[in-house]
Amino acid sequence: MALTLTCPVCGKRNGYEFRYGGEEKGPRPDEADLTPQAWCEYVHMNKCVAGIQKEWWCHKDGCGVWFTTHRNTTCNLEVDTPEAQS
């Protein structure tokens, strides 16, 4: 089954309308005492979870909003509540 995603403005839409924006990695690290290695870890390193992960998506063919959602990477389906599916 093709991926569908739920845009917070437009509702459930075809996955082809969206652009993937990467894993949700939490807030940007504080720049005070930030080492190049820690910044590199934050920017480039991913967890690549085989299961449910929180991700950024952009509704590029629609309203253009950026939002986070949960997706099960093993079956490529959006998950409403991660706790219920894990």
């Binding site: 403005v9 437009c10 839409r13 082809y16 309308e17 509704h59 590029k60 063919d61 629609g62 309203c63 253009g64």
Partner: peptide, 8 residues
């Protein structure tokens, strides 16, 4: 707000 003929 969506694609029509693949155009936003």
């Amino acid at each position: 707000q969506g694609p029509f003929s693949h155009v936003p």
